[in-house]
Amino acid sequence: MDEQIKQIAERVRGLRDALGLGIDEMAESCGLASAQYAAIESGECDLSVSSLQKIARHFDVPLDVLMFGEEPKMNAYFLTRRGAGVSVERTKAYKYESLASGFRNRIADPFIVTVEPKPEETPVYFNTHAGQEFNLVIEGRLLLNINGKELILNPGDSLYFNSALSHGMKALDGKTVRFLAVVMQ
């Protein structure tokens, strides 16, 4: 996991270097705090997909290039076989498997997200990003907190929401949760 985060950090730093921008300029142009952006480049902290998405969209770079180091090539269709999507494990608790990494100019980013259980007292990590999000639970039970409202989703349950609202999730019952997440802007 740490190696993947460091590789993402190197790609983000490489983008900034290619653009000839300083850390403060890069952060400001992407709507991120300088400290938040510097933490992304350091590779020593958790990376949010939404922060990477902000950077990618601002500079018109495919999210896959930053996350996976691969340039999308297809523009008619892209097939992802079960379990064969390009994946990145951001933290020990979250793994993202891209389901459309090879499709160019897509308007949504679909992922299979795997959330590992944490000790009950572990706080929920919250995130916000532009756009909308759709989540469909495949297995396990998921606690999803949106703007202070706690919702429990069971297999087959789905939720569509404004992702600019503060949201966070947690696996329940000490079991792994897998869900389909589609992030749109």
Rank of each mutant, 00 (worst) to 15 (best):
Q4T: 14
I5L: 08
K6Q: 06
K6A: 15
I8D: 09
I8V: 14
I8M: 04
E10V: 04
V12E: 13
V12Y: 06
R13P: 09
G14L: 05
D17R: 09
D17S: 10
A18L: 13
G22D: 08
G22R: 13
I23V: 05
I23L: 11
D24A: 04
M26A: 11
E28V: 00
S29L: 13
C30A: 07
C30R: 01
C30H: 09
L32G: 11
A35I: 00
Y37V: 01
A39Y: 03
A39V: 00
I40Y: 08
S42V: 03
G43E: 15
G43M: 11
C45T: 13
D46M: 04
L47N: 03
V49W: 07
V49N: 14
S50T: 12
L52P: 00
L52V: 02
Q53S: 15
K54C: 07
K54M: 07
A56C: 03
H58Y: 01
H58L: 00
F59S: 10
D60N: 09
L63M: 15
M67T: 11
F68M: 10
E71F: 13
K73M: 15
M74F: 03
N75D: 08
A76S: 10
A76E: 06
F78W: 15
F78I: 04
L79I: 03
T80V: 06
R81W: 00
R82Q: 07
G83Q: 03
S87R: 14
S87T: 03
V88C: 05
E89M: 14
Y96G: 10
R104I: 15
R106Q: 02
D109S: 12
F111A: 12
I112V: 13
I112L: 12
I112S: 02
V115N: 06
V115W: 04
K118D: 02
K118H: 01
E120W: 09
E120M: 09
E121P: 10
T122E: 13
P123Y: 07
Y125S: 05
Y125K: 07
F126P: 02
N127P: 13
N127E: 15
G131W: 14
G131V: 15
N135E: 11
N135F: 05
L136K: 02
L136E: 15
I138N: 09
G140F: 12
I146Q: 08
N147M: 14
N147A: 07
G148H: 00
G148F: 03
G148S: 04
I152L: 02
L153M: 15
S158M: 10
Y160G: 14
L165A: 07
L165F: 14
L165Q: 06
S166H: 05
M169D: 04
K170M: 03
D173H: 11
D173P: 05
K175G: 10
V177R: 09
R178H: 05
A181T: 05
V182L: 13
V183L: 14
V183F: 14
M184Y: 01
